[in-house]
Simulated scan of single mutants.
Amino acid sequence: MANTPQSKKRARQNERRNDVNKARRSRIRTFVRKVEEAIASGDADAAKLALQAAQPELARGVTKGVLHKNTVSRKISRLAARVKALQA
Rank of each mutant, 00 (worst) to 15 (best):
N3W: 11
N18G: 14
Q87R: 14
Q6V: 10
I39W: 05
K84I: 06
V35N: 03
K34M: 13
L49K: 15
R74T: 01
T63E: 11
I39V: 13
K9G: 00
E15H: 12
K64F: 06
E37Q: 09
P5G: 04
K48G: 10
V72R: 03
A47P: 06
D45E: 14
V66T: 05
A85L: 13
R24E: 06
V35G: 03
A11N: 06
P5L: 06
R27Y: 11
T30N: 06
A46G: 12
K9L: 09
V83T: 07
R82A: 15
L49H: 15
A81P: 02
N21F: 03
S41I: 05
A50C: 09
R33A: 12
L58T: 07
V72S: 00
A2F: 04
A11P: 02
L51I: 11
V20F: 04
A40M: 05
D45R: 10
K48T: 14
G42Q: 07
R74P: 00
L51T: 08
I39R: 04
A85N: 14
E36R: 13
A53G: 08
R74N: 04
P56R: 04
K9Y: 05
A11Q: 10
G65Y: 06
S73G: 12
A40P: 02
R78L: 07
R78C: 03
A80Q: 08
V32H: 00
A2C: 04
A53S: 12
R27P: 00
R74K: 03
L58M: 14
K69R: 12
Q13P: 02
Q55D: 04
A53K: 15
K8Q: 10
E15F: 11
A81I: 08
D43G: 03
L51A: 06
E36F: 02
E57L: 09
S77H: 05
K69C: 00
R24I: 10
A38I: 09
R74L: 00
A46P: 01
A40I: 03
S77C: 02
G65N: 05
L67M: 12
M1Q: 06
G61L: 05
F31A: 15
S26P: 02
A80T: 15
N3Y: 09
A88M: 11
N70H: 12
R33I: 03
K84H: 13
V32Q: 02
T71P: 04
S41A: 15
E57G: 03
R12L: 09
Q13A: 11
E37V: 05
V66H: 02
S73N: 09
R74Y: 01
A53M: 06
E57H: 05
G65K: 08
A85G: 05
R24S: 05
L67N: 11
A44V: 01
F31C: 12
D19Q: 15
R60I: 08
M1P: 11
T4P: 02
V83G: 08
G65E: 04
L51V: 07
R60L: 11
T71K: 13
I28C: 00
L51W: 12
R25H: 03
P5S: 05
A44M: 00
L79K: 08
E15G: 10
A11D: 07
L79R: 11
R24P: 00
K64I: 02
A38F: 06
A40D: 14
K69N: 14
T30V: 13
